[in-house]
Amino acid sequence: MTIERFPVEESHILMFARAIGDENPVYTDPGSPEAAEFGGVIAPPTFTMAGMQFDPDAFLRPKLGEPWFGSASEPSGATIESTGRLHAEQHFEYHRPLVAGEILRAEERQGESWAKESKRGGTLQFEEMFVDYVSVDTGDIVVTARMVSVLPSQAVQG
């Protein structure tokens, strides 16, 4: 994942806040006293995940002219090996609040990978990744994210 330019915008934060069920005015109302404290609406704690919208290669978004693995007239439009990769862990470190109007870039670092046997998911292949979300204007790291994903060898039971 490489994101050169992730503009953090009011309307995007509003949609994200509605989706997670947190309509705190600090996220949804730029005219509120809550937002005024920060000079604008701020991003909810998990918002940087939406940087995926600005990754030109994001694997989990249908792209023009490319087969998509979800259904259309058939149950799957493409065979892709790792469609079943699941999210195992997510960690964030916040260096300061993220305010609408800022522009970030994301710098990714590969972490460890390991395997584990499980009754519910068969062989589990884990992968760790770090992402620094950096302010394009100031060069400071605003949020550091650490993600662990898992690819089970079978659909996870119960």
Binding site: A50, L60, R61
Partner: peptide, 12 residues
């Protein structure tokens, strides 16, 4: 809603 806002359109 979450798929649209986050950009995670995984059909799962």
């Amino acid at each position: 809603m979450y798929a649209g806002a986050s950009g995670d359109y995984n059909p799962l």
